[in-house]
């Protein structure tokens, strides 16, 4: 494939200093991932799922592989949407929403799988640079000129709530090497995973240094019936409402017929 050659060449230039130290390895490593499907359907019995992504390292240095010095991090990021974070405070003894902050482009979900514990793969600065991991996601408040302390508080709360609802998750050991070059990543899809276009990204590290990343897209959608109902409710609210009323009346009437004899 000609395009692959170009990518490899670019990488070679970008990582020239790194590779300089290991001049004997002229061809740089490459990472690829493949999704068994580019579409996940949420059916009526959906209660969360595990998504498996397979991937391979090209041109892996056998020595580094044997020492287990290659690390892979796979991330599945949900569609970005604006989110409002509300805070309750005590007013007249009651807990009432009083303050709020809106954040732009918050990934609905963020599921990360790693070969080892994060601190064993690379240092915090490396994660920050790549904006990798729930705590390094850049969450942008709509009102960026607000009090920095408040913004910091709400940003932390947003992450904490996302983690508590299982939408942001980290799975240490979720990526496993099946052979020297083949790996498998297992990611968590929460029961309330958002529908839309998700992006899977894989990051390759060697001896704590970031080498390359690759990505693939995945569409999560409701299965036929659920999707049609949802779309219908959104687009034809009036007819949907009338249908809901008719269903209720028929159910009530049938209930009467079924149980009348008793």
């Amino acid at each position: 494939m000609p395009s692959k050659g170009i990518i490899a060449a670019t990488t070679f230039l970008t990582f020239a200093p790194v590779l300089g130290a290991r001049a004997q390895n002229a061809i740089p490593e490459n990472i690829q991932i493949g999704l068994s499907t580019d579409r996940v359907s949420i059916t009526s019995d959906f209660a969360g799922a595990e998504l498996t992504i397979f991937g391979a390292l090209d041109n892996a240095d056998p020595l580094v592989s044997r020492q287990g010095r290659y690390d892979v991090i796979v991330v599945l990021e949900g569609p970005a949407r604006p989110v409002m974070v509300r805070k309750k405070t005590r007013v007249l003894g009651m807990w009432i929403n009083t303050e709020s902050q809106i954040f732009r482009d918050v990934p609905e979900s963020y599921s990360m799988a790693l070969t080892r514990a994060p601190q064993d793969i690379t240092d915090p600065a490396g994660y920050r640079q790549l904006a990798l991991g729930p705590s390094n996601l850049y969450l942008q408040p709509l009102d960026a000129d607000g009090d920095p302390k408040t913004i910091e508080e709400f940003t932390a709360a947003l992450r904490e709530r996302k983690e508590a609802s299982g939408l942001y998750s980290v799975r240490v050991g979720g990526v496993r090497f099946l052979s020297q070059s083949l790996f498998r990543a297992t990611l968590t899809l929460a029961p309330n995973v958002a529908v839309g276009t998700h992006r899977a990204r894989a990051f390759l590290f060697r001896n704590g240094m970031f080498l390359r990343e690759t990505s693939a897209q995945l569409t999560i959608r409701k299965a036929g019936m659920e999707q049609r109902l949802y779309e219908f409710a959104q687009q034809h609210g009036l007819i949907y409402g009338i249908a809901a009323v008719l269903i209720a009346i028929i159910t009530g009437w049938i209930g009467r017929l079924v149980f009348r004899k008793d």
Binding site: P82, V83, M84, T89, W95, A157, R161, K162
Partner: peptide, 13 residues
């Protein structure tokens, strides 16, 4: 006191 004083909802820009 609720388990968390923070809650999330879809924001409108």
């Amino acid at each position: 006191r609720p388990a968390s004083v923070y809650s999330l909802s879809a924001g409108v820009l």
